[in-house]
Amino acid sequence: MTEYKLVVVGAGGVGKSALTIQLIQNHFVDEYDPTIEDSYRKQVVIDGETCLLDILDTAGQEEYSAMRDQYMRTGEGFLCVFAINNTKSFEDIHHYREQIKRVKDSEDVPMVLVGNKCDLPSRTVDTKQAQDLARSYGIPFIETSAKTRQGVDDAFYTLVREIRKHKEKMSKDGKKKKKKSKTKCVIM
């Protein structure tokens, strides 16, 4: 069974824990209790493949930012979460993405942009803004509501699919490099 290491990042209060708990335990946590770091595991079937999701729910508070490099190193894919009623959390996505790329030393890291709290009427981040940002990053965008469960499975499952595509691409690139290195030079 394939294991996928997913990391949920975003500013404090955007609903990272609520999304994760909704996926794992099928219930909505409405009281806000700032996370330092929590880890969850769940076995699911995605596109006919049974897999184990190892999900790291991270601290959004700035005082825990020193811990970010460590979990970013171990993560295979990242859910970059903002709240649709919090423009600052949307603007912060850029910083999370840049930090992930720096730590992973790669421009090509599996990510999904997630606009959470889409059940709320007080939207300050337009869907088109988020779609445009995701398009500019070359990553999928999904709106979710941890409260109603809308888009929750889709967000995590899409990230797994992005990781699969990335692994497939990397193995193809690896095979191309191996083929090239088999060419021999004969000096007579």
Score class of each variant (00 low, 15 high):
Ile36Ala: 01
Leu56Asp: 10
Gln22Asp: 15
Val45Ser: 13
Asp30Ala: 09
Phe28Asp: 01
Ser17Trp: 00
Ala18Gln: 15
Leu52Asp: 14
Phe28Ile: 05
Gly15Val: 01
Gly15Tyr: 00
Ile24Arg: 10
Val14Met: 10
Val8Trp: 00
Phe28His: 05
Glu63Asp: 10
Ser39His: 09
Ile24Tyr: 15
Val29Ile: 11
Ile36His: 00
Ile21Met: 09
Thr58Val: 05
Thr35Gln: 00
His27Phe: 15
Gly48Ala: 09
Tyr64Ala: 04
Glu63Trp: 03
Glu62His: 07
Val7Cys: 15
Tyr32Lys: 00
Lys5Thr: 07
Leu56Ala: 08
Tyr40Phe: 03
Pro34Lys: 02
Ile21Asn: 06
Gln61Ser: 15
Phe28Met: 06
Leu56Cys: 15
Leu53Trp: 08
Leu56Pro: 01
Lys16Cys: 06
Glu49Lys: 10
Ile55Cys: 10
Asp30Gln: 11
Gln22Glu: 11
Asp47Met: 07
Asp33Val: 03
Gln43Glu: 13
Leu6Gln: 03
Gln22His: 08
Thr35Asp: 00
Val9Tyr: 06
Asp47Ala: 10
Asp30Ile: 07
Val8Cys: 08
Leu52Met: 14
Thr20Asn: 07
Asp54Gln: 14
Asp33Pro: 00
Gly60Asn: 03
Tyr32Thr: 01
Ile24His: 14
Glu37Leu: 15
Arg41Gly: 08
Val45Glu: 12
Glu49Arg: 11
Glu63Gln: 08
Thr35His: 00
Val45Leu: 12
Tyr40Lys: 00
Lys16Leu: 01
Val8Gly: 04
Lys16Gln: 03
Val45Asn: 11
Gly15Arg: 01
Leu6Arg: 02
Cys51Lys: 12
Asp38Tyr: 04
Cys51Leu: 12
Gln61Ala: 14
Arg41Ala: 09
Glu63Arg: 05
Asp38Thr: 02
Asp57Lys: 00
Ser17Val: 00
Gly48Met: 07
Gly15Phe: 03
Gln43Trp: 06
Thr20Val: 10
Glu62Gln: 08
Asp54Gly: 11
Asp38Ala: 05
Gly10Phe: 03
Glu37Trp: 10
Asp38Leu: 00
Thr35Arg: 00
Val29His: 12
Asn26Asp: 13
Cys51Arg: 10
Asp47Cys: 07
Gly12Ala: 14
Ile24Asp: 05
Val8Met: 06
Ile21Gly: 07
Val45Trp: 08
Val7Trp: 10
Pro34Gly: 02
Phe28Asn: 00
Gln61Val: 09
Ser17Arg: 03
Glu31Gln: 06
Lys42Ile: 10
Asp33Thr: 03
His27Gln: 15
Lys42Arg: 12
Gln61Gly: 09
Glu37Tyr: 11
Ile21Trp: 07
Lys5Tyr: 03
Gln22Ile: 04
Asn26Glu: 13
His27Arg: 06
Gly48Lys: 11
Glu3Ile: 09
Phe28Trp: 12
Leu52Ile: 14
Asp47His: 09
Pro34Arg: 02
Tyr4Leu: 13
Leu52Ala: 15
Leu23Asp: 05
Ala59Val: 02
Val44Lys: 13
Thr58Pro: 03
Leu23Tyr: 12
Thr58Gly: 05
Gly60Ile: 02
Thr50Leu: 09
Val8Ser: 05
Val44Ser: 12
Val14Thr: 12
Ala18Arg: 01
Gln61Asp: 15
Leu6Met: 09
Tyr4Asp: 13
Leu52Gly: 14
